[in-house]
């Protein structure tokens, strides 16, 4: 192949292109490439930021795999995802079917149910803290109306995670809106055809709707796995100033990492934690990704790249 010769105007175009994306290139080097390399190096050092870092080889990782709290935080995070992700997928799907109805005022409901996914952060966490108050909270009062004596929620290690799962379900409208987008892309003629073939409402759901929503399901599943390793603000507030809760029952992975990095300034150890946590969520995501041929349905012509990068 002969070497490509660029004309003067093509060379100018190329220069302009590089110039416009230059901010991203600098940002990529400074805020992505450098920190990734540095984080990997740091995970092999001991560093409390006051003294110079010293190389300790694999000892951070050895410590990590003997650290009970590491296992605890992993267990908390994975248990939380095992309940909150499937529940929010099922409820989100159900809600999206309701939101897809053609009735008056449906836009109002859509707006309302999406609201909780915009309202995250400290303020709403405090509201939840008050609702879950074991003595005077609204939730236990409502439970008492139906004859149930409410648990001590954030004071009882057995009830901390259920409380977090309940709170996560309040944001189910977010996934419902995603499902709704998928529902609205399903061509009506498919339903017509199924109807003519005599399919019942349930058959139409299982044979038409559900398969065509699997790409959305797949995407939300991946996001859910990655997201549970990022749970931080709400846990920081609910457990009280970044603590782990009773018997560390609310010690989410990110929270433990924060404690190590910014409370005990054990930067090397925390970097090792970041890598191990990152790799575990990556492996989980890859497992889900690898199974997609078995259950994710992509329309013909769509080359299996339906998921967003």
């Amino acid at each position: 192949m002969t070497k490509q010769v660029l004309s003067k105007s093509e060379r100018r175009e190329e220069r302009m292109g590089y110039l416009f994306i230059l901010p991203w290139i600098i940002g990529f080097l400074a805020f992505a490439a450098f920190p990734i390399a540095a984080s990997l190096l740091l995970s092999f050092t001991k560093w409390d930021i006051y003294k110079a870092p010293s190389w300790v080889g694999l000892s951070n990782f050895q410590r990590l795999f003997q650290d009970e709290l590491f296992y605890k935080s992993m267990k908390v995070t994975l248990t939380y995802s095992a309940f909150s992700i499937p529940l929010s997928l099922v409820l989100g799907l159900g809600l999206s079917l309701l939101l897809n109805l053609k009735i008056k005022g449906i836009d109002f409901y859509r707006t309302l149910f999406y609201l909780p996914s915009v309202i995250t952060g400290v303020a709403i966490s405090m509201v939840w803290m008050w609702i879950f108050n074991d003595g005077y909270g609204l939730l236990n009062y409502l439970l008492s109306l139906i004859g149930i004596e409410g648990p001590h929620w954030f004071k009882d290690p057995n009830w901390v995670l259920p409380a977090y799962v309940i709170m996560s379900l309040w944001g189910v409208g977010g996934s419902a809106i995603m499902f709704l987008g998928g529902l609205q892309n399903i061509p009506g003629h498919l339903y017509e055809a199924a109807k003519i073939d005599g399919a019942s409402v349930f058959q139409r759901f299982y044979k038409v709707t559900l398969p065509l929503l699997t790409p959305t399901l797949f995407f939300l599943l991946l996001m859910g796995i990655i997201g549970s390793f990022q749970v931080f603000t709400i846990a920081y507030i609910m457990n009280g100033r970044g603590a782990g809760g009773p018997d560390n029952a609310g010690l989410f992975y990110m929270l433990y990492l924060y404690q190590k990095a910014f409370k005990s300034f054990d930067m090397g150890y925390a970097s090792a934690m970041a890598w191990v946590g990152g790799l575990i969520s990556l492996v989980l995501a890859l497992i889900v990704y690898r199974t997609q041929n078995k259950w994710v349905y992509y329309e013909a012509g769509d080359t299996g790249k339906g998921e967003k990068a």
Binding site: F28, A32, P35, A38, L42, I226, M267, S271, S281
Partner: peptide, 20 residues
């Protein structure tokens, strides 16, 4: 590459950036 950076978990970059 830019799209791939969306997959970098924040906890990995957080500590080096703080030190920087």
């Amino acid at each position: 590459v830019m799209l791939a950076t969306m997959l970098i978990p924040e906890q990995v970059t957080m500590i080096p950036l703080f030190l920087l």
